[in-house]
Design a protein around this nucleic acid. Structure first.
Lengths: 217, 217
DNA sequence: GTTAGCATGTAAGGAGTTACATGATTTT
DNA sequence: AAAATCATGTAACTCCTTACATGCTAAC
């Protein structure tokens, strides 16, 4: 019955509401600013999710006070401000403590990374390493496939694969730098909100946006 | 009633079967070699899709001849070879003639590009330009969002956005090179099967780093 | 003779998407 | 007063995922 969503959207909503309460419209903008490069959500996804989270007691709705004070009419639809409940905070921490495949697949990784500031250092490391080896598998599969079908591929297919491979390799380099950076920061850093060495994770980055893929068992 | 799938998978299956008939297992491998960087499909997606395409008469099943000749036992489940029917070819051409949003969104673009060899030059151009402006929009949205929430972002969020932005910009550059390349090839090139000018769509020329060119075999 | 890979499927359902619908508030 | 943007939703649908189930064939 209850939705019991476990997707990217749910995590992103909880994570954003952890910062500060917001209403739906603003939430959606922040969402797409945060994850803009990877995916975008519409209201048709967001509001049902908010409803579901509310039903599960993880978030709660408040009426927008300023607005209601100004125009205390009955029956009017006021802005709704969502905030994280105590259960919601707990649930969020549970989600952020996990480091399974879902956290390093294309879909999940972006959001998980966005909330690394709330994530324990050891979990961060497992996720970064998980993603790296996932990408390395992909490079392997790529080369294998290329070897098998090396004749009869037209130049567009080839170019697509070249670009894809390069993107993945770029992301691997990026991850390597992040991992180094994490190690230097020392394994004790819990990372509650802000400043992780901030040195130069500046690298370049792979993977064009929006990719997603299940695992190859 | 009938599935009427219009997704990435369907197009990819039809496109691959246009090259040569295959059975499901092989199809899946080729699929994941082709699109490996973007997404992967399991059998649970593939076989229902094949079934649906068969029901719609776009592909047809043949028994694997070599196998059946060798062991003509009754009741045994033989390998099934799928091939594109005449209707299937026509339908594929229809799909490849389209250049709407679906063809430049993240999901669709990869597959469409993979089959550019079967796509008319003007359609190719519209898709490339469509995707580019889509990405440019995204860059804009990004910068806007960044300006609005510039304070109170922790360094991970910032790093994610920097990486995302850089990825998008990189793809824009790639598209620019492809578009230039297309223009130089002349707008008359139809690109039926293989060889589309074959000149240098590989604008980035250099083979990928560790390309290793498998030493014979 | 048992692992690994080849090969084909089904049932149930999840995570969003699309299209639609409505009203309030601010800007021009 | 029109247009843009803020703000909130719903119903129907789709494409795909997950988990399961089966059996053949080649290699070690």
């Amino acid at each position: 019955m209850s939705g019991q969503r476990t997707g990217v959207l749910e995590l992103a909503v909880l994570g954003l509401l952890h910062e500060t309460p917001m209403h739906g419209y603003e939430l959606r903008k922040r969402l797409n600013a945060l994850l803009g490069a990877f995916r975008a959500f519409g209201y048709g996804s967001l509001y049902p999710c908010l409803k579901d989270l509310t039903a599960r007691g993880l978030i709660a709705e408040d009426a927008d006070v300023a607005l209601d004070a100004a125009k205390p009419l009955a029956g009017r639809r006021s802005k709704i401000v969502y905030r994280l409940t105590a259960e919601g905070k707990e649930y969020l921490q549970d989600l952020l403590a996990q480091s399974g495949p879902a956290s390093w697949e294309d879909d999940g990784f972006g959001v998980r990374f966005a909330f690394f500031g709330l994530t324990r250092a050891d979990v961060r490391m497992r996720i970064l390493e998980g993603r790296r080896s996932r990408l390395e598998e992909r490079v392997e599969a790529f080369r294998a496939g290329l070897a098998r079908t090396r004749e009869r591929v037209d130049s567009y297919t080839l170019e697509l694969q070249r670009h894809g491979l390069e993107s993945v390799e770029r992301e691997v380099r990026w991850l390597n730098e992040l991992i180094d950076s994490e190690r230097q920061a020392g394994p004790g850093t819990v990372g509650q909100s802000g400043e992780h060495t901030q040195g130069d994770t500046a690298a370049t980055a792979g993977q064009w946006p929006g990719a997603d893929s299940p695992s190859e068992k």
